[in-house]
Design a protein around this nucleic acid. Structure first.
Length: 888
DNA sequence: AGCCTCCCCTAA
DNA sequence: TAAGTTAGGGGAGGCT
C-alpha cells in the first residue's frame, strides 16, 4: 500500500502515539484510586513505538544513558541505546510488525493503568486514529486498554460509518467509498463528537485537549502552536506531516532525529498546557463543589451541575423534584417577560459616562423575593386554570387566605410565599453559594504566598461558586431541554430584575442634585451621562448613585460602580467602546470595547487593529483629521502590499453536518475545509474547529465563496493568488469604521476615494490571457508598471525602465544591493526562528515551519517572495545570474 | 431595493 | 442518549 495522505497521519501516530500521552502528573494523589505502579511526581517519560525500522547510531549525539523500563513488553525488544538515532529522554520499543506494535502499546497502557488519557485531537490525530487503524488489523484497541474489557465484542463487527457528515455530492469519490469497518463503537456518535471526543475507554477518562482549550481561552485559532503561545508564552514550530514523513523516511541521521524529536515535543506540550492551566485541579474542585464526578464536570451541561446541587439541598428540606416528561416540558406556557435593553442614543460622548451594574442580579432577585419552585403560589389571575410551569397546581384557598397580607406579588403577576412562612430551596441554595464564596475569598486573602497550591484551589472554588450562581436562572428557564423548567418562575426572576433596573434608572433621571441622564442600560447595567463633570467628580457621583440604589432595594441587591468612560462611543444595543477608568486615581485609561469588531472573532486582524488604533487616536485627540491621515496611510499600505498577511486571515468555526441542505452554498470557512478534505480526507476539521481562510482576487462578479482559499495556498511561493485588497478595504474595514466614525460626521468612502492611488494596478483583466502559470507568479508579484529601480513609469512589458536599462552596471549594482538586503532580512528572520521552540534544526533544514500563529512565518514568506520576484525580473532582464537564487 | 433566511459571534 | 436562557448586530446570498 502506498503512502497516501491518510498514511501520513498514521505514520506519526504509530511512531510516538502521536500527540497522545499518558497523564501521570497532575492527578492529586489518592483522588483517583488505583494508579498502580505510579507515584505522583514520577517523571514523564514518553514511549517511542517504532515499527520495522533499522536504527543506526548518529554521530555527535553522546552522553545517552539507558533508562530501565518499568514493564516488559511481550512482543518486542527494548532497543539498546546508541542505536536509536540518538533519541534521548524516552524509551524506544521496536516492533517487527504493526500488530505487535499495538500489543506493546496496549501492554504499556495496561501496566501503567492511568486514570486519564489526554491527546490534542483525540478523534483525528490521537487515540481515535489509533483505534481506527487497530480495527483495520482486527484489534479492538479501546476495549483492550479498557479497565472493563468485554469478552463478547463480536456483536458489533462489520458495522459501517453510520453517518456522512457532508453531503455526498460535495466530496470526491474517494471520500465516501471508505470501507473502514469499525470494530468498536468508537468515533461516530454525534453527541460525543460535538461535545467531547467521541472516544471512550472504559474506566478511564479521555480528555480532548483541543476542545478543552476551546472552552478555556479565547483565541482566533486553536492550533497547538497558537495555544502554546497563549498559554505557555512559547513559540513552537509547525511542521506538516508531509515534511515529517520525508525527514523520517530519509533513513538514520539528523533528519530522522529531528522528526522524532518534534513529535515528542508535541506530546509533551499537552502536559505543559494542562499543567499551566491547572486543568486537573480546577476540574476536581468543580466536581467537589457540584458534588459530581470528574468527567461530568467537563462533559455534562450546566443544567446537570445546578441540579446536582439543587437536589441535594432540596432533599434536606424534605422536597422531591417533579420529573416531567418531554411532552409536559414542551407544552408549558411560553415565557412572556424580557429583560430591559435600552436603545442607546448612538453617538460620541466627550463627557464622562458612569457605568454601574447590579452584582449577580438574578441570584439577588431569587434571594430577595424568595423566588422558588417551593414558594410559588401561581398566577393571581391564571390565564389557563391550574397550570403552573410544567405541572398542574392551584394553591390551597385557606393557605392563601391566611397569608393574604404577606404574599409577595412579582411584577408578572405571580404570588410567592414570604420567607417567614417558608424559605425557598433556590434562595437558600444561592445564599449559601454567595456566602461560601465570600468566605473562600476571605480565606484566600489570609493565605501566605508560600501556599500557592491552596491559593489556586481556593480560587478555583470561588470561581466555581460564581459560575453556578449565574446559571441557576438558566435552569428555571431551560425550555428546550429542561428537566424542571418553570416559565412563571423564570418570568418572575426576569421581571423583578427588570423592575429593579427601571426603578434605578428613574431614580437617577429624576434626581435633582446629580443632573444625570441614563443613556443606556442592558439587563443589569446603567450608563449614566454626567455632562460637564470631571472623571473624579463622576466617581463621586457614581458612588452616591450606587449607595442610593442599593439602599432602596432589599438585601442582597447591590448596585456597583463599575467604571467611568471618558470619552466613549455608544453604537447600538450591546455595542460600545470607551476609554475606561476603574478608579479615580487611574492615570492612563484602558481601552474597553464591548461587542464591536475589536473583540469579535469573525473579523480579521486588519479590521480589529485599524479600528482600535483609529478609536485610540480619536479618543486621545478628538480630532477626526488625525484618524483620516492614519486610515489613508493604512489603506495605501494595504493596496501596495506592504502588510502582513496574518492580519488578513479570517478564522471561523466550521460545523460540517449541520448546514442546511437547502442552502445553495456553505459558509466560506466550510468551503475551504471541504477543499482541504478533497486533497486529504484526514484534514477534516474537528466539530466547531476554527478554519482559517483569506479572500483573493477573482473574476468580477464572483461570489465571496468563490474567492476564499487556505492562507497557506496564498503563501506558497508559486501561488497564483493575490490578496483581495479591495474586498478587505471596501467590505471589511470601511463599513466597520464607518459605523463608528459616521457618528461624528465622517465619510470614509469619501476619504478612500479621494486618496491618491498607490503605484500598483489591479491585474485581474490580464489574468485570463496569461498562459504560463510560472510567468503569472512573477507578474503577480511585480504588477507595477513602474520601474523597479527608479520608480518611474515604464512600458507595461518592462520592469526596468529605458533610462535605467541604459546603464547596465548601475542596474546590476542596484539589483545586487537590493538582493543582498533581502538576503540579510532572511538571515535575520532565520535567526529569530532559531530561538523558537524548534531550535536550530528547523532553520538548518530550510524554511519548513508553517505556523499560521507566527508572524515571523508570514514575514519570511514575504521576503522570500520579494527576493524571488526581484531575481526573476533581474534574470529576465539579463542582469542577474540565475544560480544566485538556487538555494531556495 | 427591500425582505427573508442562514450563519457567526457576542452581551448579559 | 444530552443539550442553561434571550437579545442583538451584521455579513452573505437568494427571492420578489
Amino acid at each position: 500500500m502506498g503512502f497516501g495522505p491518510k498514511w501520513l497521519g498514521w505514520m506519526w501516530s504509530c511512531i510516538f502515539s502521536a500527540k497522545f500521552s499518558i497523564l501521570v502528573n497532575g492527578v492529586p494523589a489518592g483522588f483517583f484510586p488505583s494508579s498502580k505502579g505510579l507515584r505522583q511526581g514520577d517523571p514523564l517519560s514518553p514511549y517511542l513505538f517504532v515499527m520495522g525500522m533499522e536504527f543506526e547510531p548518529v554521530e555527535n549525539i553522546t552522553d545517552l544513558k539507558p533508562e530501565c523500563c518499568a514493564c516488559t513488553p511481550a512482543s518486542s525488544s527494548l532497543s539498546e541505546f546508541g542505536k536509536l538515532d540518538g533519541i534521548s529522554g524516552c524509551k524506544v520499543l521496536v516492533s517487527s510488525e504493526e500488530k505487535l506494535l499495538f500489543d506493546d502499546f496496549i501492554n504499556i497502557i495496561c501496566s501503567f493503568d492511568p486514570d486519564i488519557l489526554i491527546g490534542w485531537d483525540i478523534q483525528g490525530g490521537s487515540l481515535g486514529f489509533l483505534a481506527e487503524r487497530a480495527s483495520h488489523l482486527g484489534i479492538g484497541l479501546l476495549n483492550k486498554i479498557s479497565r472493563t474489557p468485554s469478552e463478547t465484542k463480536t456483536a458489533s463487527r462489520n458495522f459501517e460509518i453510520p453517518e456522512k457528515r457532508v453531503a455526498d455530492e460535495m466530496l470526491p469519490e474517494n471520500l465516501v467509498d471508505d470501507s473502514v469497518l469499525l470494530e468498536e463503537a468508537i468515533i461516530e456518535d454525534e453527541w460525543g463528537r460535538t461535545h467531547a471526543s467521541g472516544v471512550h475507554v472504559g474506566g478511564r477518562i479521555v480528555l480532548n485537549v483541543w476542545r478543552l482549550m476551546r472552552g478555556e481561552i479565547k483565541l482566533n485559532m486553536y492550533t497547538a502552536e497558537s495555544v502554546a503561545e497563549a498559554v505557555l508564552r512559547q513559540k513552537i514550530p509547525s511542521i506538516r506531516n508531509r515534511v515529517l514523513t520525508k525527514w523520517f523516511s530519509s533513513g538514520p541521521g539528523r533528519a530522522r532525529y529531528r522528526s522524532i524529536e518534534y513529535v515528542i515535543q508535541r506530546a509533551k506540550l499537552n502536559f505543559e498546557i494542562m499543567n499551566q492551566l491547572d486543568m486537573i485541579n480546577r476540574t476536581s474542585e468543580l466536581a467537589r463543589v457540584f458534588g459530581i464526578d470528574f468527567f461530568s464536570v467537563l462533559s455534562r451541561g450546566s443544567q446537570y451541575h445546578v441540579e446536582s446541587m439543587f437536589l441535594r439541598l432540596a432533599h434536606t428540606q424534605n422536597f422531591l423534584a417533579i420529573s416531567p416528561g418531554p411532552q409536559q416540558v414542551a407544552t408549558q406556557p411560553a415565557m412572556e417577560c424580557l429583560p430591559l435593553v435600552m436603545e442607546p442614543e448612538s453617538g460620541f460622548y466627550a463627557d464622562p459616562v458612569v457605568v454601574l451594574d447590579f452584582q449577580s442580579l438574578y441570584p439577588s432577585m431569587i434571594i430577595a423575593y424568595n423566588l422558588c419552585y417551593s414558594t410559588c403560589l401561581g398566577k393571581v389571575a391564571p390565564s389557563k386554570a391550574d397550570v403552573l410551569g410544567v405541572s398542574i397546581y392551584s394553591p390551597d384557598p385557606h393557605a392563601l387566605h391566611d397569608l393574604k397580607d404577606q404574599i409577595l406579588l412579582t411584577p408578572n403577576g405571580v404570588m410567592y410565599v414570604p420567607s417567614k412562612a417558608r424559605k425557598g430551596v433556590l434562595p437558600r441554595l444561592l445564599e449559601e453559594i454567595l456566602s461560601t464564596r465570600i468566605m473562600v475569598k476571605k480565606a484566600m486573602k489570609k493565605l501566605v504566598p508560600s501556599q500557592q497550591v491552596l491559593q489556586r484551589i481556593f480560587n478555583a472554588r470561588q470561581l466555581a461558586l460564581k459560575l453556578i450562581a449565574n446559571v441557576t436562572y438558566g435552569y428555571t428557564a431551560a425550555g428546550y431541554s429542561g428537566r424542571m423548567p418553570c416559565a412563571e418562575l423564570a418570568d418572575s426572576i426576569v421581571q423583578c430584575g427588570r423592575r429593579t433596573l427601571e426603578n434605578a434608572i428613574s431614580l437617577v433621571n429624576t434626581h435633582d442634585k446629580w443632573k444625570a441622564k441614563v443613556i443606556y442600560g442592558d439587563t443589569d447595567s446603567m450608563f449614566v451621562l454626567l455632562k460637564g463633570r470631571t472623571v473624579k467628580e463622576s466617581f463621586q457621583i457614581g458612588h452616591e448613585i450606587a449607595s442610593a440604589v442599593t439602599a432602596m432595594n432589599p438585601n442582597p441587591v447591590t448596585l456597583k460602580m463599575e467604571k467611568v468612560y471618558h470619552p466613549c462611543f455608544l453604537l447600538t444595543k450591546k455595542r460600545y467602546v470607551g476609554y475606561s477608568y476603574e478608579s479615580p486615581d487611574q492615570i492612563e485609561p484602558t481601552f474597553d470595547a464591548k461587542g464591536i469588531e475589536t473583540v469579535r472573532r469573525d473579523t480579521c486582524g486588519a479590521v480589529a487593529k485599524t479600528m482600535e488604533q483609529s478609536l485610540r487616536l480619536f479618543f486621545e485627540h478628538q480630532d477626526i483629521s488625525k484618524v483620516k491621515v492614519y486610515l489613508q496611510r493604512q489603506w495605501r499600505r494595504i493596496l501596495s502590499g506592504r502588510v502582513s498577511l496574518q492580519d488578513f486571515v479570517f478564522a471561523k468555526e466550521v460545523r460540517l453536518g449541520t448546514y442546511s441542505s437547502r442552502a445553495s452554498s456553505l459558509p466560506p470557512a466550510a468551503i475551504v475545509a471541504i477543499k482541504a478534505m478533497r486533497a486529504d480526507p484526514r484534514a477534516e476539521p474537528c466539530y466547531a474547529e476554527r478554519v482559517p481562510y483569506v479572500v483573493i482576487h477573482g473574476e468580477p462578479g464572483a461570489r465571496l465563496v468563490d474567492l476564499v482559499v487556505d492562507p497557506l495556498d496564498l503563501l506558497a511561493i508559486d501561488s497564483p493568488y493575490r490578496l483581495n485588497d479591495q474586498y478587505y478595504i471596501n467590505k471589511q474595514i470601511i463599513p466597520a469604521l464607518q459605523r463608528v466614525f459616521g457618528l461624528v460626521g465622517a465619510d470614509l468612502y469619501q476619504w478612500f476615494s479621494e486618496m491618491p492611488r498607490p503605484v500598483r494596478e489591479v491585474y485581474a483583466k490580464h489574468k485570463s490571457h496569461a498562459p504560463n502559470p510560472y510567468r503569472t507568479r512573477i507578474d503577480f508579484y511585480y504588477l507595477s508598471k513602474h520601474c523597479i529601480l527608479c520608480g518611474e513609469l515604464s512600458p507595461a512589458s518592462a520592469h526596468i525602465c529605458d533610462k535605467c536599462s541604459k546603464d547596465g552596471t548601475a542596474v546590476a549594482a542596484a539589483v545586487i544591493g537590493r538582493t543582498a538586503k533581502l538576503e540579510r532580512d532572511i538571515q535575520h528572520l532565520a535567526a529569530i526562528c532559531r530561538h523558537c521552540g524548534g531550535g536550530d534544526w528547523i532553520v538548518e533544514s530550510g524554511v519548513k515551519c508553517t505556523s499560521l500563529a507566527c508572524s515571523v512565518f508570514y514575514e519570511r514568506r514575504k521576503v522570500q517572495k520579494d527576493l524571488q520576484g526581484l531575481s526573476s525580473v533581474a534574470t529576465e532582464a539579463g542582469f542577474y545570474p540565475k544560480c544566485m537564487v538556487e538555494w531556495f
